[in-house]
Design a protein around this nucleic acid. Structure first.
Lengths: 175, 175
DNA sequence: GACGTCAAGCTAACGCCGTTAGCCAGACTC
DNA sequence: GAGTCTGGCTAACGGCGTTAGCTTGACGTC
């Protein structure tokens, strides 16, 4: 409904790039409007010439994460069509490579209205296909994968837990 | 290591109670030291006579959540020994009844050093038993359950998704 | 070439936030 | 009674997101 139809300006893209660096390298607490402006050599209020608020910058990051993880899943699908373990491995690898971004995009309601149309569906499609269109299985599998990733990112498993084995056990059960 | 060995004072317990009300009724953004103090008829700095910082209050809430969900799981186990679906239902019901508390306790690293000894293990034990001691299966199942709950809390599933069916499908697969 | 417009920077400030320093009143102890 | 401890208080600091309002320079048009 409210999603942008035009690309952002070059400056806006620079801002999003800087925001991403800040987030990925230093975590969510470091992503402040002042730090972001600093990184760009401007003052915080100037950011509001490009984005209405901080959330709008975050939405861009969320969209990036969704698009990139969709790409990762599509690549895995192309490599091993129909393989759930391949998808699971791709999902896990992408999330663990970008933990702060993954959390940002995942630990709050999706700002669906501000996202490019079809992006959410695209991200979900490969898993959907691997589950042969079984919606319930696809959702259960997504929940498993998300749970594994997010619990690992937050260090909730015991230090000595064999997470490879847990992933295998889960994907095998959900084949 | 650093966990408390003595019970908190009566006043401290009142503070934690108020914090819980604030969190559960109004969400994490509403849980500020000033609002908490207001609720108790005192000023924010006075809270620091009872807790070293905000995190210490939150740790108490996390401990409550862990203890209560452990109780819920133990009750489910007593009702239907060895039943994974019964445990899953209890887990889901508790989490959805206290979504803000569940997120607070779950979406960050566990402050293990500040938690009562054995609490984490106690919360995990019923699932462990239902999985017949298969650690990998227990972890995969926990990830599935956590993923389902947290995705539901954050409204990540489509509005028309049949989550009961997805839970059934998942618990069946992971029996 | 002067003029108006507009994009994109700036400073100052507001009202939040967690937190600290330092003061004070009352209760409890010897 | 004197001293200590408990649990309040006010004032303040630095950081946050954000707003208002000013300025400067580039561009397009007469």
């Amino acid at each position: 409904m409210a999603e942008r139809l035009t690309a952002r300006s070059a400056r806006s893209q620079e801002i999003v790039e800087a925001a991403r660096t800040l987030l990925e390298e230093s975590g969510p607490a470091a992503l402040t409007m002042r730090a972001l402006a600093d990184h760009l050599g401007i003052k915080a209020p100037s950011l509001y010439k490009h984005f209405p608020d901080k959330q709008a910058v975050e939405v861009e990051l969320i969209a990036q994460m969704l698009a990139e993880s969709a790409e990762a899943m599509e690549a895995a699908e192309a490599r091993e069509p129909g393989s759930l373990p391949a998808l699971a491995e791709a999902y896990r690898a992408y999330a663990l490579a970008h933990p702060h971004l993954y959390c940002l995009a995942t630990e709050r309601p999706l700002p669906r209205a501000s996202l490019p149309a079809g992006l959410e569906d695209r991200a979900a499609a490969p898993l959907m296909r691997a589950c042969g269109g079984d919606l319930d299985l696809a959702r259960a599998t997504w929940a498993f994968a998300h749970g594994m990733v997010i619990l690992e990112i937050h260090g909730r498993f015991p230090d000595d837990a064999d997470l490879d084995a847990a992933w295998k056990r889960g994907t095998r059960a959900l084949h």
